[in-house]
Design a protein around this nucleic acid. Structure first.
Length: 619
DNA sequence: CCCCCCCC
């Protein structure tokens, strides 16, 4: 078993000077331990691995992009790992390995050999957290002292990237004769921490904010933020005052830069959606140089379909690729929190899920958004999911909006929309407000649709709490004997007639006339069976086509006429949105089905849904 | 050193 491990790999990687990377050695090691690092709010989990070559062990941080290897149990204690991409950093005077790429393979049941810690200094601080008290490290990292020891952390991915980096940095150096000390080795963003001050990152500006002016007790100022990204992660950088003057124009969204000599601080996670425990502060020493190398990754999207927004929690952020179907008017609202006015504009987005959703733009973006006629495809990154009317979207200041992005999904969405999306009728998250996803019949999710046979077979309503379902069914019978009750005009409770008029116990009032409200019992059926359901006032009105008041009066005057009205209501098919609940009746448990809404079938939408169901069938 | 992300 021991021969599966790469001999001496741990000390080779740990002590190599200059550092080596996966182009030199791709060691296979045994995992002795995997520990989840307590994640700060809003940040991803991190994993620390202890890995052995049979003689020595060392610890390493797993890049968050590899978290799934742990979470899927591909990497396990005693299992084997082959490092295909990695970098080393010095943190707190210790060499730390960051794993950027790895493959897993099964290992023995037991630890191989009796490996010892590769580094005594590491052993002495073994129990420390990965984020130690910064004070001693600051001391350890005195430039003169630390400079010779700082180990170059290289991103090891494409060779072209390294070549480009070297060329770019060489060029920068040449342009700065006598312009200060070298700014340190190229680091992956993931390797940045407050405990190093000599580093350079090569990163793409994923997002640049507007310049913000502020004024508080400390005085006035201005600032801007950028979100920087490379293949290992993202980080937010902020510049205040003179840094705005120095760098705001230089940094262009989408472009790649070398950045060095900036401070790295602990991020205040509650104020940022950027996935990093740290953030960069640009100051007067900061050096930023453009880089022509395009190998740093483009902004990565993780698109959620509009239909899929139903499964995204409120207040989460997500990425959406959609066609702008409609652009609303520019509006003005007043913030409840600070009384300040804000411009807003709602736009309607659609995609191939054949759902539509509203997205709100704010401020300048709302004022300048003019893509009205040509239904552009827009990629949104980091938009906030709200639950207004079921689901809604809202831009954060950190959200990005890229019109007609040059990515495959965008081209295929464009093609689909021009060919057929134009004429599709979209299911919309209803604007009814507050009732939640699926409140309106137009926004029933396919999984809520049941045949009557399914409602019975699946015992919908047999659980303790109320359940909801929707069904497409036809009215086959309506009970005419008692279809309504006399209700209080104020509170809708049942009223009783006495010598003074109609008395409401709840309101302790007497009214000359009640308002009749429906409790309509009807039998509905489809190909799989029939059930009795109860429709209350509004739903019943839409089925009968008359108010209960009208029908009560009609029945008193001419029962044949009211019977004819009921007759007309038979044989019609609706999309019923129902609730089901247990109920005891004469000591017998039964399920009562109530109609929350009955909507006429929109055959166009219905046809699309059926096609979708057919597509899902495994033939 | 900002830090609001708003309204129906």
């Amino acid at each position: 078993m021991a021969d599966q491990l790469t001999p001496n790999a741990v000390s080779t990687v740990f002590f190599a000077d200059p550092p080596i990377d996966a182009s030199t050695l791709q060691p296979t090691l045994q995992i002795l331990n995997i520990k989840k690092i307590q994640a700060a709010a809003n940040s991803m989990d991190r994993y620390r691995l202890i890995m052995s070559d049979g003689q020595h062990y060392l610890q390493a941080m797993l890049g968050t992009q590899l978290n799934n290897l742990v979470e899927s149990n591909a990497l396990t204690k005693n299992g084997l790992i082959t490092l295909t991409s990695y970098a080393t950093n010095v943190v707190q005077g210790r060499r730390l390995l960051i794993i950027l790429g790895a493959t897993a393979s099964p290992g023995p049941a037991e630890r191989i050999g009796t490996p010892v810690n590769v580094d005594d200094r590491a052993a002495a601080t073994e129990t420390n957290d990965a984020k130690p008290n910064p004070v001693p490290q600051q001391q350890q990292q005195q430039p003169q002292q630390a400079a010779p020891q700082i180990q170059s952390a290289r991103t090891v991915a494409p060779a072209a990237a390294r070549g480009g980096a070297a060329a770019g940095r060489g060029g920068r150096g040449g342009g700065r004769a006598g312009g200060g000390a070298p700014s340190g080795p190229l680091y992956p963003i993931e390797g940045l921490s407050p405990y190093q001050n000599k580093w350079t990152i090569k990163a793409r500006v994923a997002h640049k904010s507007d310049i913000k002016h502020y004024s508080n007790q400390r005085g006035e100022g201005k600032l801007f933020n950028v979100t920087l990204m490379d293949e290992t992660g993202e980080i937010r950088a902020t510049g205040f005052n003179e840094a705005v003057d120095n760098f705001y124009e230089t940094l262009q969204e989408g472009k790649v830069y070398f950045l060095s000599r900036a401070r790295v601080n602990i991020a205040k996670k509650q104020f940022s959606n950027v996935n990093n425990d740290y953030e960069i502060m640009l100051d007067q020493n900061t050096e930023i140089e453009p880089c022509d190398d395009e190998s740093v990754p483009q902004i990565k999207y993780n698109f959620v379909s509009i239909e899929g927004l139903a499964n995204v929690e409120k207040d989460q952020t997500c990425d959406v690729l959609a066609v702008v179907k409609d652009v609303g008017e520019l509006g003005q609202i007043t913030s409840k929190s600070n009384g300040r006015p804000f411009s807003k504009r709602d736009i309607t987005l659609v995609d191939q899920s054949q759902w539509s959703v509203r997205l709100t733009l704010w401020g300048k973006q709302a004022e300048t958004f003019t893509a009205a006629d040509d239904s552009p495809v827009i990629a949104f990154k980091g938009v906030k999911v709200g639950d207004f009317g079921g689901r809604s979207l809202s831009m954060f200041s950190s959200s990005t909006m890229t019109v007609n992005p040059d990515i495959g999904e965008a081209h295929s969405l464009r093609g689909w929309f021009d060919a057929e999306g134009n004429s599709v009728s979209y299911q919309n998250y209803s604007n009814a407000g507050g009732a939640g996803v699926g409140a309106a019949v137009t926004s029933i999710r396919p999984e809520e649709m049941k045949t009557i046979g399914q409602i019975k077979d699946e015992n919908i309503g047999m659980s303790d709490k109320q359940e909801y379902f929707s069904t497409k069914a036809t009215v086959s019978f309506i009970k005419q004997e008692s279809f309504s009750y006399p209700a209080c005009p104020t509170c809708n409770k049942k009223v009783t007639e006495d010598s003074d008029g109609w008395r409401c116990e709840k309101c302790d009032a007497v009214y000359p006339q009640p308002v009749h409200r429906y409790i309509l019992n009807l039998s509905v059926m489809d190909h799989s069976g029939h059930i009795w359901i109860t429709a209350f006032n509004e739903a019943a009105e839409s089925i009968v086509g008359k108010t209960a008041n009208e029908l009560v009066e009609m029945k008193e005057v001419d029962e044949a006429q009211s019977a004819a009205i009921f007759q007309l209501a038979l044989g019609k098919t609706y999309l019923f949105q129902c609730s089901a609940k247990q109920d005891s009746y004469n000591d017998q448990m039964r399920i009562r089905y109530s109609v929350r809404r009955a909507a006429e079938i929109d055959y166009k939408t219905e046809a699309h849904n059926l096609i979708k169901l057919i597509d899902q069938m495994q033939i």
